[in-house]
Each structure stands twice: as C-alpha cells, then as structure tokens.
Design a protein around this nucleic acid. Structure first.
Lengths: 158, 158
DNA sequence: TATTGTTATACTCTATAACTATA
DNA sequence: TATAGTTATAGAGTATAACAATA
C-alpha cells in the first residue's frame, strides 16, 4: 500500500460544524444513532433478567398472545421465520415458554408462556420501562407521543 | 425436547389489537422498526454506487473534513476505532480516499477523498436524499424537522 | 505512560436457500 | 403445490483485548 505524505494540511475545514454535519441531514442517520442508544440501553436493562432484546420481544408477544405460531410471531416482529427458531429455542430451554402441537394443523406449533415466563416478562418489562424513562427524561409525554406517531408514519406497522 | 399437545386452544386473545401491541409502548421498539426500514432503504439506494451505509458515512465525513484522522472519524460516527480500519481499507482499495502520513504526528493518518471520491459521494448523496424523500412522503417538512429534533434530544450528538 | 492504527476474535442480527413433514 | 418449522450458512455491524509504532 503506497502512502504519501500530507504536504499541505488544511488549516481550517471548508465549513464549520461537527464532522458529521452533512450526515445529519439524513433522517436515517439520526434515527440510527438514536436507535443504537436505545438498543444498548435496553440490552443493559434486560441483561439481569437473562433476556436479550430479541428474546424479550418474542416473549412479550407470546405472553400477550397465547398459542401464537412461530410464523405469526415472525410476521409480528418483522423478522424471518428461520431466525425465530433459535430465539424460541433459547426461551424454551430456560422454561419461559413451551411449544405445543396443534391437533388441527400438525405443521405448526402453538407457543405459550409458562408461569415463570409471564413473571419474567413482567419484571423485565418494568425494568425496561424504567430504563427508557431515564433515557427519555428530556422529552415530555406529549413529545414522546409525537415521536411514536412520527415513527409509526414511517413504519405503517399494520 | 418433550412437546405436549395444545389441548385447550385459546379461541380469542386476552386483549384485542396487533400481536406486538405491548411492545409498541416502548420508544426503543418503534425507533428500531423505523430504523430498520430507513436502513434497508438506504442500503438499496447506495448499492448502485458500490457503497454500504458504513462506507458512505465514512466517505461523507472524509469529503467534508479533509485530513481527518481515523480516530476522529470513529468518534464522529460513534464507532470503535478498530472497526474503522476495514471501512477505510475498502474505500482506499477503490481509490475513493487516500491515507497520508502526518509529519507532525507519525502515529496518525490524514484521510483525504480523491476527486473520484468526491464525485461518488455527491452522486450517492443525491440518490440517498431522493430515496429518503420517497420514504418520508407521509411527513411534512415541519414534521421531519420535528422528528430530527426529537431524535437529537435522545442522542445529544455534540 | 498514553495514543494511533492495527489485528484477531467473537457475538448478535439479518438474510437466503434448501430440507422435512404436513396440508 | 403450498405452508410451518428447521438447518446451515454467510454477511454485516458491533465490541473487546492486545500489540507495534510513536508521542
């Protein structure tokens, strides 16, 4: 790799401002940065409960929707069916959920949370809500609702 | 793995609404979903220019800040120094940027975009802006500014 | 001692293709 | 044929530790 020497270092940048000033014009860049912060914050909050963001999300859907199938779960969380398998496996291994055969369609499994799963979800959900609360302290309730609304209009969800 | 049979399938869910209704109360969940959409949209827009999101972001910073160092770049993009290396490598391999030794501090490299790098950045930036425009068509200019402001208050940036 | 760039490594998330068993 | 779950695999992003060269 041939590397030359900087013979004429720029004394002042062409334009003032932060190094990423151009990127800040992109909604995707701002969303990604905020998302990274929220994700690492959430991961830290969930870790004491033995859950990652993906396993917590799946557990939430299963607790709230008894007998949901893996395909339905994948669709709800906007992920590939194949990627749900290991997530479900790890929740089943620690006895937070169970797979049950559906008599009327033996291809699919009905997923149900155990009592331990429900308790774990509830405790983790409270911890996560608290962690988000601390992180979003700069936003009023109205602003948080507004943020959710704007984001929903990027991702139609339903 | 012992799997039982669902002997009492729930006819109706405990509560109405989408499967992920509980998760939608979390800002992190909504941000992540919107972020995924913006990211895949951006990746598609940048692909024809031979750039990924990470290489485009780095190229942007280098074009706008001649002689930036790798450590400064890492700090600006909120990433680890070690992870900039391969990104810089790939930009250098296709001759969009160059590493130049700094006489006053021989530990660091000054990064500079080539003419081709500047042109590639400009073309890719236009394509990305257009792709975002299409994706954000449901948001007015005021709402986009508001979104950026709310996100910035989650990620203080400066 | 501290910093810059680097290498190696590992973990997670994501995406695709192909397989099986059932429908 | 089509669908549900599964397996294998690969790419990308992210994080940590340790090293050489330099300050």
């Amino acid at each position: 790799m041939v590397r030359k020497t900087a013979d004429k270092p720029e004394e002042t940048p062409e334009q003032a401002g932060p190094l990423d000033r151009h990127l800040r014009d992109y909604a995707g860049y701002n969303i990604k940065r905020a998302s990274n912060i929220m994700q690492s914050n959430a991961a830290k909050a969930l870790d004491p409960y033995g859950l990652r963001i993906t396993t917590f999300s799946a557990l939430c859907v299963i607790v709230d929707n008894p007998d949901v199938t893996q395909s339905q779960l994948a669709a709800a969380l906007n992920m590939e069916r194949s990627n749900t398998v290991l997530i479900i496996d790890s929740l089943e291994e620690i006895n937070l959920i169970g797979r049950f055969r559906v008599p009327t369609d033996r291809r699919s499994y009905a997923l149900r949370a155990t009592l331990a799963g429900i308790k774990r979800r509830d405790a983790a959900a409270r911890a996560l809500a608290k962690a988000e609360e601390e992180r979003l302290v700069n936003l009023s309730p109205e602003e948080r609702a507004q943020l959710a609304d704007l984001l929903r209009r990027i991702d139609p969800l339903d």
